[in-house]
Design a protein around this nucleic acid. Structure first.
Length: 552
RNA sequence: GGCAGGGUAGCUCAGCUGGUCAGAGCGCACGACUCAUAAUCGUGAGGUUCGAGGGUUCGAGCCCCUCCCCUGCUACCA
């Protein structure tokens, strides 16, 4: 019984390189999930794209003296390159928010909500920079803190005393763009009437007991505090135009259009393959489950705002799972942040380490329940002492022995001994346990299950010592090596979601027909008589002595 | 300030609804083995008992209260 899944992954802003936190928090887990679910025989559509609107883009554009469009043209390809090199290649579609289809879909949702009474116009006073001729977000206003007198306080918060501020409270306020003194000017905006969804959202959230505790508690906290209507337009010129007469000077708020991206991307996917209505199977059918992979900062947008928009629209299904991860912190206790310029970029890391090494380590420290810490020494240790020692070496020692003693041809076996039967039973069982963990979005423990099997196989080899047996009892050795190879073949599949590159190489070496994907999530023995390639090391050991001088 | 998550062996972390819950991996020590990328396998030391202090209970990392520390969010930066 196959399931139909829509996997939605948070849209990265196309304003910089991707950092390790984003990879470990959203993209690698989503990729593992999709690879597993497809192996398990489920139909999966995976969508995302580069978010090309929003303040981060315009800020970068101003800083670099180029247009927002130029920023996107510069960084979107870098993101695509990152996917390619890191093996995040399960996308059904990876698009951008600049497509005609996305603009049309966003405006369609906007008008639908307007028509159904879930959007309202309101006027509010906002700070305005008369020199730059633009309204100022709170963070773009600086001044003296009314509480502690700190002169560099930002409009939303004072970094010195930590108090939350309202930009109009600042003493001697100035615009961060021009230094001009902001003036109050009234501005009209559309608001999403979240208050109208208070009860409906509360009831819906209460039923999501399968969600991670922090995701659920955080969302329920918003409900308990009471939702507030939220402005979904901005006084800017970069973004999706407001589809209402006389609103040419404003644009739709980036978060409103970004979440709609999941829907518009699914439509684009369907168009691309020539079945323009196929997206409906994922949005209109309750049998299809939506999974969202995001960082924890995006939780409210996916558990409150987007569901409210969908409820307001009235026809589409709501999220099934919101697998929000915590953050990956860095040695100095600094958070990984684009704006502060700290941290390790994925592309940079991939210049020094193989994609599978990076994926392996990031899966091990995946911040599923709590923030975790990235340390380059630990990455090296995980590669050398676990990935290679437990798994890479297992494959290598067995294939080497088959080459040395059986000319590289997998020996046929007769009746198996109890130890071999037991080990194969363990391999079969691991498909069930690791699969269940992956399906539940527990990627660390899913990986652990496979590593346990590798350890059992190593133990089995030591117990049966085929290198010794081959001299006295060739059939005993043949059984051992064939069995071990079968378990390695199982591990190749079990580890494929996490380690797609090296398991594909191993698959080639086994000279089996088709791809790993064709085989599915199940134990399958390697036929006796198969001629193996290799042996070759699947992973490169990292020299720790030479590494010391490298940048952190 | 408010809200959320976290503080468990040297390190990174598991511990679901309270009763083998004091654990895993790495590191370390010792032993075995030598097929393998000096990899593997076994054994063991290590936590003054799970941030501090109270409390509930027959029984608490797991529940309640207070305090300390770390991280994030606080609605216009992942």
């Amino acid at each position: 019984m196959s399931e139909r899944l829509l996997v939605c992954v948070g849209w990265p802003y196309a304003n910089y390189f991707l950092h390790v936190g984003q990879a470990a928090g959203a993209y690698i887990p989503a990729d593992i999930f999709v690879r597993y679910e497809r192996l398990a025989g489920n139909e999966v559509v995976m969508v995302s794209g580069s978010d090309c609107h929003g303040t981060p883009i315009t800020v970068t554009a101003e800083r670099e003296g180029i247009s927002p469009r130029d920023v996107v043209d510069r960084y979107h390809p870098k993101i695509l390159e990152t996917w390619e090199k890191l093996g995040i290649t399960s996308w059904s579609i990876y698009t951008t928010t600049l497509t005609e289809n996305h603009y049309a879909t966003t405006q369609e949702i906007f008008l639908r909500l307007l028509e159904r009474g879930y959007l309202e116009k309101r006027t509010a006073d906002q700070l305005y920079d008369p020199e730059a001729e633009r309204f100022l977000p709170d963070r773009y206003v600086e001044g003296t803190c009314p509480h502690c007198g700190y002169k560099e306080a930002r409009g939303d918060q004072c970094d010195n005393c930590g108090k939350t501020l309202d930009a109009v409270e600042l003493i001697e306020p100035r615009s961060r763009f021009t230094g001009a003194t902001p003036v109050l000017r009234s501005s009209e905006h559309y608001f999403l009437m979240l208050t109208k969804f208070q009860d409906q959202l509360g009831e819906w959230l209460a039923k999501q007991t399968h969600w991670r505790r922090n995701v659920l508690n955080f969302s329920l906290g918003w409900i308990t505090e009471g939702l507030q209507d939220r402005a979904i337009t901005r006084d800017i010129s970069w973004g999706v135009p407001v589809p209402v007469e006389g609103w040419d000077a404003k644009r739709i708020y980036v978060w409103f259009d970004a979440v709609i991206g999941y829907l518009s991307a699914t439509r684009e996917w369907a168009q691309n393959k020539g079945e323009p209505d196929d997206w409906k199977r994922f949005w209109l059918d309750p049998a299809a489950k939506q999974y969202y992979f995001i960082g924890k900062d995006n939780i409210p947008f996916h558990t409150i705002i987007w569901p409210a928009m969908l409820m307001g629209h009235g026809e589409y299904e709501l999220p099934y799972e919101v697998a929000a991860n915590q953050y990956v912190n860095f040695s100095a206790g600094q958070k990984q942040s684009k704006s502060k310029g700290t941290g390790t970029w994925v592309l940079e890391l991939l210049e020094r380490y193989s994609a599978d090494t990076v994926r392996f380590y990031l899966t091990q420290i995946m911040p599923e329940t709590a923030d975790s810490e990235f340390r380059e020494e630990e990455l090296i240790r995980a590669n050398n002492d676990i990935l290679i020692a437990t798994w890479g070496n297992l494959a290598n020692r067995v294939i080497s022995m088959i080459h040395r003693n059986f000319d590289g041809v997998v020996p046929a076996t007769g009746e198996l001994s109890p130890e071999s039967v037991a080990l194969i039973g363990d391999a079969r069982a691991t498909f069930a346990t690791a699969g269940a963990e992956f399906h539940a979005c527990h990627f660390r423990s899913g990986l652990q299950e496979s590593l346990k099997l590798a350890q059992l196989a190593n133990r089995y080899l030591d117990d049966r010592a085929p290198w010794k047996a081959v001299k006295t009892d060739r059939e005993h050795a043949a059984e051992t090596l064939a069995t071990a190879l079968n378990v390695i073949n199982a591990l190749k599949v079990l580890l494929h979601p996490v380690l797609p590159f090296s398991t594909a190489e191993l698959h080639e070496d086994m000279a089996l027909e088709g791809s790993i994907e064709d085989g599915g999530w199940a134990y399958a023995p390697v036929p006796g008589g198969t001629r193996l390639g290799g042996p070759r090391p699947l992973y490169v050991k990292i020299d720790t002595t030479a590494q010391a001088a490298g940048p952190a």
